[in-house]
Amino acid sequence: MSVIAKLKDLLAEALPPAAGPEGMSLPRPSGKYMRGGRGVTFAGWKPALREAQDDIGEAWDDAAARVNDLLHNSGWLAGALEQCVANTVGTGLQLKALPENETFGMTPAQASDWAKTVERRFELWARNAQECDIQGLRTFGQMQAAAFRSWLITGEILAELPWRKRPWNRYGTKVRLLPPHRLSRKTESMRRLINGVYTDADGMPVGYRAIRKDLFKHDVEYDVRARDAAGRLRVIHIFEGAPGTHRGISPLVPALQVARQFDQLADATLMAAIVQTLFAVTITSDEPTEQVLQGLLTPQEQAQMLAQGISPMEAYIEMVAGYGGALSGRIKRCGTRGNIPPGASRSAFVCYPQL
């Protein structure tokens, strides 16, 4: 036992407990974080503390799918995303070359000329889809917007940098954007594979396990090295995360529950408003049912009934079914339409008023 521990024990024995009323001992004063875990707030709040990569690997598929579904079906959230893309990317990020004059041994005039030349050549490459996109479909600005959308949905940007110089190309550097879900989520500790990312002993990514579709639309996994023999990047994998993570997750995940609840509330409010507009009326009559139902039809519907050779009941069912699909015009006559037989009160059917 250390000297400090012995001193603490001696002091604890020497200090008598605080005395309360009638000789009752009181608890010693103490100061602890979160009140020592007591109370209503913290007593039942005991989340597990795990590695961030484990949490991401477990929730990645569901998180990406739910964010993607919200953007497909929520107009206000999709509009917010497009506005965010417009504010961040716009028509595309521009290159602003600022060479180090002293490092490269250039005069200010030479550096200015060099910067203008590089910027012009970059514009020639970036604004021509045949030069920058391996598929020849998007300019560099359009690829930036697509990559930013991918980051908002999945928390990651994934792309390949193949070298392909076609006869009509001036440059060989190309970009192939890939959806991040094409990156495997498998983990194999013995091979240092963490959620589809191969790492070396230091944790540096050295390869990736990707997924592609074969001719029969089946998923086929294959490995891709992160760099070529010359050290040039072959794969770009951009994400944000805590130390020790190798995959990202959508920044919209914390808002998923609120966004889903908002959509459900909007649907429930609309349905409640529709239900409140329904009303029903009951017929009481000594006349036969066929005559009562025939009295609910307009002259045009009665003529159509005779032409088709159907019964008044069938014509009435078609008439009621038509209220759900054609609400304009006919609904306004709902309470007074037709010739109700004498002695009958109002009708026994449900009307959907005009919305």
Results as ranks from 00 to 15, higher is better:
residue 1 M to S: 05
residue 3 V to F: 01
residue 3 V to L: 07
residue 6 K to S: 14
residue 8 K to S: 14
residue 8 K to D: 15
residue 9 D to F: 05
residue 12 A to Y: 02
residue 17 P to A: 13
residue 22 E to Q: 12
residue 22 E to W: 04
residue 25 S to K: 11
residue 27 P to C: 03
residue 32 K to Q: 15
residue 37 G to R: 10
residue 45 W to P: 06
residue 45 W to Y: 15
residue 47 P to L: 01
residue 49 L to P: 01
residue 50 R to W: 07
residue 54 D to A: 15
residue 56 I to D: 08
residue 57 G to A: 14
residue 57 G to Y: 02
residue 58 E to L: 10
residue 59 A to K: 10
residue 63 A to R: 00
residue 65 A to D: 09
residue 66 R to W: 04
residue 68 N to V: 03
residue 69 D to W: 12
residue 70 L to P: 09
residue 78 A to P: 00
residue 78 A to L: 09
residue 80 A to F: 08
residue 82 E to F: 06
residue 82 E to S: 08
residue 88 T to Y: 13
residue 93 L to T: 06
residue 94 Q to H: 10
residue 94 Q to C: 11
residue 94 Q to D: 13
residue 95 L to P: 08
residue 105 G to Y: 05
residue 108 P to W: 03
residue 112 S to H: 05
residue 114 W to F: 12
residue 124 L to V: 01
residue 131 E to N: 09
residue 134 I to P: 05
residue 138 R to S: 14
residue 141 G to S: 04
residue 142 Q to D: 09
residue 145 A to C: 04
residue 147 A to C: 03
residue 148 F to E: 04
residue 148 F to M: 11
residue 149 R to K: 15
residue 155 G to L: 08
residue 158 L to Y: 03
residue 160 E to Y: 08
residue 162 P to Y: 00
residue 164 R to K: 11
residue 168 W to L: 12
residue 169 N to I: 05
residue 172 G to Q: 03
residue 174 K to V: 03
residue 175 V to L: 12
residue 177 L to I: 04
residue 180 P to F: 01
residue 190 M to S: 09
residue 192 R to C: 00
residue 193 L to T: 03
residue 196 G to C: 12
residue 197 V to F: 08
residue 199 T to P: 02
residue 199 T to W: 00
residue 201 A to Q: 15
residue 207 G to I: 02
residue 211 I to Q: 01
residue 212 R to D: 13
residue 216 F to W: 10
residue 231 G to V: 07
residue 231 G to W: 05
residue 233 L to T: 06
residue 235 V to E: 06
residue 238 I to V: 10
residue 238 I to A: 08
residue 238 I to C: 03
residue 243 P to S: 12
residue 248 G to I: 06
residue 255 A to F: 00
residue 258 V to R: 12
residue 258 V to C: 10
residue 265 L to S: 11
residue 267 D to G: 09
residue 270 L to R: 13
residue 274 I to G: 11
residue 277 T to S: 15
residue 278 L to K: 12
residue 290 E to I: 06
residue 290 E to H: 05
residue 295 G to N: 01
residue 300 Q to P: 00
residue 304 Q to W: 09
residue 307 A to W: 07
residue 315 A to K: 02
residue 321 A to T: 08
residue 323 Y to H: 15
residue 330 R to H: 06
residue 338 G to A: 10
residue 343 G to F: 05
residue 343 G to N: 13
residue 346 R to T: 09
residue 354 Q to N: 13
